[in-house]
Design a protein around this nucleic acid. Sequence first.
RNA 1: GUGGCUGUAGCUCAGUUGGCAGAGCACCGGGUUGUGGUCCCGGUUGUCGUGGGUUCAAUUCCCAUCAGUCACCCCA
Length: 440
Amino acid sequence: MSKPTPLSGFPEWTTSQRMIEQFVLDRIRQTFELYGFAPLETRSVEPLDQLLRKGETSKEVYLLRRLQADADGPAGDDALGLHFDLTVPFARYVLENAGKLQFPFRRYQIQKVWRGERPQEGRYREFLQADIDIVDRDTLPAHYEAEMPLVIGDALRALPIPPVLIQVNNRKICEGFYRGIGLTDPEAALRAVDKLDKIGPAKVTELLAETAGASEAQARACLALAGISAPDASFADAVRALGVTDPLLDEGIAELVAVVETAAAHAPGLCVADLRIARGLDYYTGTVYETQLRGYERFGSICSGGRYDNLASAGAVSYPGVGISIGVTRLLGLLFGAGALSISRSVPTCVLVAVGAEEERAGSNAIAEALRSRGIPAEVSPNAAKFGKQIRYAERRGIPYVWFRGAEGDQVKDIRSGEQVNAVPGEWAPPRVDLKPLVG
RNA sequence: GUGGCUGUAGCUCAGUUGGCAGAGCACCGGGUUGUGGUCCCGGUUGUCGUGGGUUCAAUUCCCAUCAGUCACCCCA
């Protein structure tokens, strides 16, 4: 059998990287729970018609099919696909369980998702998202839109990563403004403006004329709006100075002011109102979020989301929501690629118990058990090689302590400093920082 | 999904107008008869990404494919 090769877009980390990932996930989960979000896991597959409710990305959905299924059979709406994000499965779950849920319903969900995209650095076909959403019945207060960045700010600031900047905008501002200047296709205008960073103002002007039927003056106004950015409520003055009036616009400004001011009070420097942020397709109806990692701006957003009013509805009842999602795999992939995340050892082991001779292994096992019973990760040496070899076994893995049994009592050695002291298995404990691998 | 660039040892990379595959680091053994790291000596690094083609001969040239990366597409 020839040597297996990687699968494009399906990353597999090393054990060290996986320990870092688990550390990151633990921290994120702790923060989400501090804010009262309840854990939820949904199944990996959804009926295709559910997955396709949100747009034209059907080609990127992975289908699930049994080997024995009719290969030529039609892949109808009842075909199963791996979920493409966590918001759509969540909306489906809310509808399915509406009768059992307490509203407003706050949940977090940390799971793999799958997209058949062309992979590159920070873009994968199988990746982890850490998602929070709040949904309510019929109406959802706007203050939840201000809460999202606070949670994310706390979650990301608790990680050993560079600072982040959350860019926020509000769909009502864009749509109200576009309507106010007489554009009839706000969605087309939004998509054109969204490309501003990539293709520049001249090309966006062309695109606005082509796809949204914008005159030169209208295009100029759109670009003026998109150019507004401020870390505080002053963006509102800049918008009003453009002289466009529309009720939806005013509503959006008020909501965005609340988001920015709440963030500024809680976490100065975390958020900026940036009116060029458009985000994806059509289902966002209020605040939208994107997040840049300082120093990694060229890789795009590592955390995004927004408010949606029409994702879940059953009959006369609707369930508006707001959510945001951390792209955990992208975040880690970028930092791993830059060598910006490390861990103090490649295994959880804190103490390696040496074996003097194979006949004495039982004694070493007993010592390891005593250590483990007090929460100290310990393993026993794989063989009774020379002690130098056993120490090297520990050193290669970053294990900080080696335990030696002796006729007149045991000793434990800190192999980093070389310091060796008398120790008793039922009493000795490492300094707190050495108990678990350190991520930095 | 479309196009560009790249692919040689565990890692970073040399290399040959087509003629037996190299260096540093790492790793293994010994010096060091049971306490590593420094130093000295020695050793292995390998289907040259994979599969085909041209050729007396291919790591080198050609085609395909896989993987990585970049741009586009898309980004719930």
